[in-house]
Each structure stands twice: as C-alpha cells, then as structure tokens.
C-alpha cells in the first residue's frame, strides 16, 4: 500500500500534499496496490474529498497538538502508522514540513529515501527514482535498496490529478509522544502566495536600482496573480525580504512562468529557477547570460517595459 502524508499549515491542507497524493496514487496504480492518506492534527477541509486526488482511505490522527511541526513527535507517529498499516511506499511533499520529517521517518522505518524526486519511479527493475541534484543543474536516478521506500516529491513537478471518488475517513489511534519543542510565537505572512507553491512568479534583480522602484514589479505581479521573488544581492541589501531570495543558496522553484526583470542570470541564480516551464527575461543588456536560459526575451529598459506589460496583461484579462 502507498501511504501519503498529508501536511497542513494553519489547519489547511497544503497544495503540495495534494500533488504528493496524486503522485502516490500514480505509484500505487503502477504497483497495483491501494493509496491511503495519513493526516496528523485537525484541519478545516472535509477529508473525504481527498478521494478526488486519489486516496481510497484517509487515516486521521485527530489531535490538535499535532497541528504544528515537531519532527520528533511527527516522525515517531508517522513511522508507527506506516508500520501498523503495512505501507510499502511512504510519500511526502518535499516542502518545509516534508523535508523536515521524511528523512527521520525513513530512519525509523529502516527505509531508503529519495528526497526532491521529480518523476514517477521506475519499478521494472527494482525501484528507481529520479531526483534533481546540483541545485537543479542535473538529475540523478537513485535505486532504493530497502523493502520499504520513502519518497519526497518536488513541488510543481508532477501536478495535481483529479480522481472522481470519495475516500473513507477513519481515525487512527497511536500514542502521541511528549512534545519535544514548545512554540512560543508565530508570525504569519498574510495574503501572499507562497513562492514554492506559485504557478506564476515575477522576480526582480539589481537592475531595478532600489527598493523604491519595486512598485512596477508589484503591479505586474498583481495583474498576473503572481508571487514575487528576487536575486540574492537584492535580499542581501534588504531591498526585499530574505524569503524571496531564489537561487542556489536561496529557494529553488519550478513555476509555470518565471519573469526575470533586471536580473543578469548568474549561474547561481539560474540554479534556483531553471526548472521553470517558461522563462521570460527583461534586461537592457542583450548580452545578459539570462537570455540563453530564456524562452522569451525583451531587450530594453525595465522601467518602460514592465508597465507596458502590466497594461497588456490587464487588457487581455478584461477582454478574456
């Protein structure tokens, strides 16, 4: 049985988990076995709807203490649940929570793990999973040699698939270990689209000259409904918050559309964004290295081009 861990933030199921569930269901189909989901804590959604993403059964560890991440507690109970349910493959989203928990679960299960997986396993000859390595500059295919397998799937790499079915929901009883950490304060970023989940991303570099010029970029992002990102020197100079820094030493993203404005396209920057499906580069220097990695390029002054692009988007949206 393929068991997919459904992760939550703020009592809401994360989009990355729905993708992980779709991915887990596809593995189960390949192996000819069932897909079940495991959720820790309490969420607002109707869990039967997880059937729409491929789960036949949902197991819930209904305890509010599990609503925030405690790796020791979460990994202990997820491993115990996987054992008692006889899971042979355990799937996580490779997001903040999944990255923290999945390797500990693998150890507790004596299972081999591949994190950052980007396609379905090859089960013809053993169990091989391809993952991104060198910060997106290459792929490695890894064989998992243990009877139980753990996989954490990269966000935006498989997509969400619809299965028209309802899942049965059951409570599962597993003793919950004492908390190993105590949360004392939570600061939420309100109203922003989380960068790793965004389909559309608009990103700015040093070419925008200063934080006071970000208005044109934010207007474009708003017109598109896109998340915003930036290059490292921009966040290092505090023009933009650290969590927007993408690249080899920042966040790695794979949106459908990445629009780079005034970013030169240094190798360390490209490493974080080169898995984007479509890349648009706006740069006044026709020799900027980013054009080599782009699908569409506009050579010219961002301060003139970006407002025109925003107007064109708004025009398209109003006539669509």
């Amino acid at each position: 049985m393929v068991l997919v861990y459904i992760d939550q933030a703020d009592q809401q199921i994360k989009k990355a988990s729905l993708e992980a569930l779709s991915y887990g269901a596809a593995i189960a189909k390949q192996l000819g076995c069932a897909t079940e989901a495991l959720i820790a804590g309490t969420v607002k959604e109707n869990l039967a709807e997880l059937g729409n993403y491929g789960a036949q059964k949902v197991h819930q560890l209904k305890n509010e203490a599990l609503n925030s991440l405690d790796v020791k507690a979460h990994s202990t109970i997820i491993a115990a649940a996987a054992k008692s349910l006889n899971a042979t493959v355990v799937v996580f989203a490779h997001n903040i929570n999944g990255k923290a928990i999945a390797p500990a679960v693998a150890v507790r299960l004596g299972a081999g793990i591949v994190t950052g997986a980007c396609s379905l396993p090859n089960t013809q000859n053993g169990f091989e999973v391809t993952k991104t390595v060198f910060s997106g500059k290459a792929f490695a295919t890894i064989k998992i040699e243990t009877p139980i397998k753990v996989i954490a799937i990269n966000q935006n790499s498989f997509g969400i698939q619809n299965h028209n079915q309802a899942a049965s929901v059951e409570e599962i009883n597993i003793p919950i270990p004492a908390a190993s950490i105590k949360i004392t304060k939570v600061e939420k970023i309100e109203g922003e689209i989380p960068l790793t989940e965004a389909n559309l991303v608009v990103s700015g570099g040093r070419g925008l000259k200063g934080p006071e010029n970000w208005g044109i970029l934010l207007d474009l992002a708003k017109a598109l409904g896109a998340a915003t990102a930036c290059s490292r020197p921009v966040s290092d100079s505090d023009w933009r918050p650290h969590h927007e820094h993408v690249g080899q030493t920042g966040i790695q993203i794979a949106p459908n559309l990445y629009i780079a404005i005034g970013i030169s396209g240094a190798i360390q920057h490209l490493a974080g964004v080169n898995r984007s499906k479509t890349i648009v580069v706006i740069n006044k220097d026709p020799e900027a290295p980013f054009f080599k990695a782009a699908d569409y390029g506009v050579v010219g002054d961002a301060f003139e081009i970006v407002p025109k692009l925003t107007a064109a988007i708004l025009k398209m949206k109003s006539t669509a």
Partner: peptide, 21 residues
C-alpha cells in the same frame, strides 16, 4: 539504503524568442 545509478543533464533550451519592447 540507496545507490546512484545514473546522472542526466536537463535538455538545453531551444533558443530565446525576442519580442519587440
């Protein structure tokens, strides 16, 4: 628990389409 079988490089982009500003 795991072993690397093979590495691959991503396909290169076919070339940028330039748009009139």
């Amino acid at each position: 628990t795991t072993s690397i079988q093979i590495f691959d490089l991503p396909p290169t982009k076919s070339g940028v389409k330039l748009i009139d500003p």
